[in-house]
């Protein structure tokens, strides 16, 4: 009996990795998916936090793709290891804080380790030459293969015919003739292939697969690094950058103000990690304080928060400060006027 070859497919939840997996499965290869959780993935998070997103399906696209294709999916937590990729990218950042090329190398390297541990034969990705400006150029494809250590074990079924033959093709585990020669930014070939394969429902991620391609998120990350004078981060830090309105009056502190009920509930879970404020005389959002504010800063923070509550036009409102250690302090202050909060304070 001939050997059943096994491939692991890097599944992001988008159409390209879905197609790549399907065409290799159709060649009789046993395919399982792998999805790396860096902490910055768009999946779920903000949908889970923000109530206004309630109508959107809360599905995790990678899981959904795996289920559609009938393959197993392994979700791997790489939060710790990913810090070095983000903080020290050898190939730099893209338009925002996205270290795409280093990120791809890292993920393929992890997939390569995984196939060795799990006795799989090769790796597939949905990469298409020229699809993305930084990580999917023709020159970068061999860099990813080589720097990750996967070399000839990395097959990109959608662009295979534009790339040198890999081991699975040369050995006849897969038929190169049935692979594709997609290139460029157009999505038409993928959509045509999806139709041919009967795939009519798929996620269309705007931009990239993670928050690091988002300008506003990247600004907040850079602000965090600059004001802490340290690029190290914890999961809670990067989660908080996805939540609330961020206002930084000075280098000592910033306020994170909930924008709606779902965020309020989520942020309430952090009352032991952050000093926090809420208005006691009127309804309004809660705020977390990040940094080391002095006593004047705390007064200012209370006045800023009051600006976002129902008492914004009152002469005086009451705001309670809760410290991480449980101690409480009361402030009676005048809310700031809308013009008193400079635009530059908003991150």
């Amino acid at each position: 009996m001939s050997k059943q070859y096994k491939a692991v497919s890097l599944v992001s939840g988008g159409l390209d990795s879905m197609l790549a997996s399907q065409v290799i499965m159709d060649q009789g290869i046993h395919v399982e998916g792998i999805n790396f959780f860096t902490g910055f993935c768009v999946e779920g998070h903000t949908h889970a936090i923000r109530k206004q997103d309630d109508k959107k399906p809360k599905r995790n696209n990678a899981l959904w793709v795996a289920e559609q294709l009938g393959m197993k999916l392994h979700i791997i937590d790489v939060i710790e290891e990913y810090k070095d990729v983000l903080i020290n990218p050898k190939y730099g950042y893209g338009a925002n804080m996205n270290p795409c090329l280093d990120c791809k190398i890292f993920m393929v390297k992890k997939a390569h380790e995984w196939i060795k541990e799990n006795d799989f034969d090769f790796i597939i990705t949905g990469e298409v030459i020229g699809q993305r400006p930084m990580s999917q150029r023709k020159q970068t494809m061999p860099i990813i293969a080589h720097q990750s250590g996967a070399d000839e074990l990395l097959l990109r079924p959608l662009s295979a015919k534009n790339l040198p033959e890999t081991l699975p093709e040369r050995e006849g585990w897969v038929d190169r003739e049935q692979l594709f020669d997609f290139s460029g930014r157009s999505r038409k070939p993928q959509i045509a292939l999806a139709n041919e394969l009967g795939i009519d429902d798929y996620a269309q991620p705007a931009g990239g697969c993670c928050f690091l391609t988002d300008a506003s998120y990247s600004n907040k990350l850079v602000d965090l690094w600059q004001n802490r004078n340290d690029k190290n981060y914890e999961m809670d830090d990067i989660m908080m950058l996805k939540v609330g309105r961020h206002i930084r009056p000075n280098a000592r502190f910033k306020l994170i103000i909930a924008r709606e009920e779902g965020e309020c509930r989520f942020m309430e879970g952090y009352r032991k990690e952050f000093d926090h404020l809420h208005c006691t005389s009127h309804t309004g959002p809660m705020a977390l304080i990040d940094g080391k504010p002095n006593s004047e800063d705390l007064q200012l923070a209370a006045r800023i928060l009051a600006r976002f509550g129902k008492g914004r036009s009152e002469e005086q409102v009451d705001v309670e400060l809760g410290l991480k250690n449980g101690v409480k302090r009361q402030y009676s202050i005048k809310p700031l006027g809308s013009d008193d909060i400079p635009k530059e304070w908003y991150l």
Binding site: F37, I49, K58, L63, I75, M239
Partner: peptide, 8 residues
């Protein structure tokens, strides 16, 4: 924990 951490 936010998804997908509970799944992991």
């Amino acid at each position: 924990l936010l998804c997908p951490m509970p799944v992991i």
